[in-house]
């Protein structure tokens, strides 16, 4: 298990992606699976920076990677505003260009890139997003 704390700033997304990519490769993921873990982590962290902390300075994101026999767990913790993922409307991917919305796309991508997604919020303990990707299962 490895944990690292990052300042919640877009300029740190690359470091966050490298951190989870290393854990994914160490867990035996191929490049395509590793890319999926990086993309899901980036989308989750970008949402935290943009919506949970809303540009507020000094916020932090703690990322924990835990290898399991069947895959990799990535946990993102923050202390910003919480949200209810059930209330985020899924994007309409068949809509005409003029009616396309980018809102909700990041969350939609996380659900499709990962095998399990859990979101918990506890007063005082912050928000915890737990992502799991199984090894060796092609999308």
């Amino acid at each position: 298990m490895r944990t690292q704390l990052f300042l919640a700033d877009f300029s740190n997304l690359q470091q966050m992606r490298e951190f989870v990519a290393q854990a994914a490769r160490d867990a035996g993921f191929d490049e395509q699976e590793t890319y999926a873990v990086q993309l899901a982590t980036d989308e989750a962290a970008s949402n935290i920076i943009e919506h949970a902390y809303r540009g507020q300075e000094g916020g932090q994101i703690e990322i924990t990677c835990q290898a399991r026999s069947d895959g990799l767990v990535v946990i993102l913790r923050d202390h910003g505003r919480s949200f209810d993922p059930q209330r985020v409307r899924p994007p309409n991917l068949k809509a005409k260009l003029s009616r396309r919305s980018i809102g909700g796309l990041g969350l939609y991508m996380i659900y499709h890139l990962m095998d399990e997604v859990q979101y918990q919020t506890e007063p005082g303990a912050g928000n915890v997003l737990t992502l799991f990707k199984r090894r060796g299962v092609q999308e």
């Binding site: 997304l13 992606r17 890319y35 990086q38 993309l39 980036d42 989308e43 970008s46 260009l97 396309r100 980018i102 796309l105 990041g106 991508m109």
Partner: peptide, 12 residues
């Protein structure tokens, strides 16, 4: 090498 939904937003 890499593109997230932030890039998709610019394209859209």
């Amino acid at each position: 090498e890499y593109m997230s939904s932030a890039g998709l937003r610019a394209l859209l």
